[in-house]
Design a protein around this nucleic acid. Structure first.
Length: 262
DNA sequence: ATGGTAGAACATCTA
């Protein structure tokens, strides 16, 4: 086990499903997991309503791009963000799902990928188009930066190991071959699924439906991911899914994923 | 049984 040192950087992602409700969970989690960077999705807050003071008091800077009721992304960080980007270039999208910034020499991209609803839905077409524009953005980002980390709620289970019942989910939303190919398209820009560098096993999940006691019954999907560029993956010592907060009172339906770089 | 729960605009929408 590596000793923590000044050169260690920990980056985490967590879909909180309303930061208004989950701010205490975030602050409690940060107390025992003082990561350098925490990317949040589904904050569901207008920017003027963002809880800056509470996050500043916890020792973090923050940048955010929110809207009322739906979506919304934020990045908490120990050091200041630079070159903040809130739009996917070339995509005219009122939904606040994208936030990119530099933290030192690391380019961080925080994604809340559209759910898609079902393969027959217009939202599915929107999801695939959104992912194609992000893929194009990442090609440029990887050409400009050596250290790139892409984190968030991807709303895609990359393969059958990431699904509690693969046959029941065959070609359903989050698991269709087309979505999985789009995920591979993101990796093909020069990124690796960081969790899979350390763990080949099935049954590791980051999301469990609120319904039908899915968490207790271990009926989950791995849809929250950390993708690392080659320069970062060779410095990555660990990537874990922290299932503890999913068991807390009034939890988000997602739980944090954390990568450690040395 | 297309069910079930959660969060938000608190009537439906989204997930």
């Amino acid at each position: 086990m590596l000793e923590p040192n000044a050169a260690t950087t920990r980056i985490a992602t967590w879909n909180v499903n309303s930061l208004r409700v989950r701010l205490p969970h975030v602050l409690q989690w940060l107390e025992s997991n003082p990561v350098d960077i925490l990317a949040l999705q589904e904050t569901k807050l207008n920017d003027p309503d963002f809880p800056i003071d509470e996050i500043t008091s916890a020792g973090y800077k923050v940048v955010y791009s929110g809207q009322k009721t739906y979506n919304g992304v934020a990045i908490l960080s120990r050091q200041d963000a630079a070159d903040v980007l809130t739009e996917v270039p070339g995509l005219d999208d009122p939904q606040r799902r994208f936030l990119a910034a530099n933290f030192g020499d690391i380019h961080v991209v925080n994604l809340y990928v559209p759910n898609g609803e079902s393969p027959e839905s217009d939202k599915y077409t929107y999801k695939l188009n959104w992912l194609e524009h992000v893929r194009a953005y990442l090609e440029g980002a990887l050409a400009a930066h050596s250290r790139v980390v892409v984190v968030g709620d991807f709303n895609i289970a990359p393969d059958d190991r990431d699904v509690y019942d693969p046959e029941a989910w065959r070609e359903r939303i989050l698991c269709t071959t087309t979505e999985r190919n789009a995920f591979r398209g993101l990796l093909d820009t020069g990124l690796q699924d960081t969790f899979r560098r350390f763990n080949d096993a099935a049954g590791n999940f980051s999301w469990w439906d609120y319904r039908a006691a899915a968490f207790r019954r271990r009926m989950g999907l791995r849809i929250d991911h950390i993708l690392s560029s080659a320069a970062l993956i060779e410095r990555c010592s660990e990537c874990v899914i922290d299932t503890v907060p999913r068991g807390w009172e009034r939890p988000s339906d997602h739980t944090p994923v954390v990568a450690t770089y040395t």
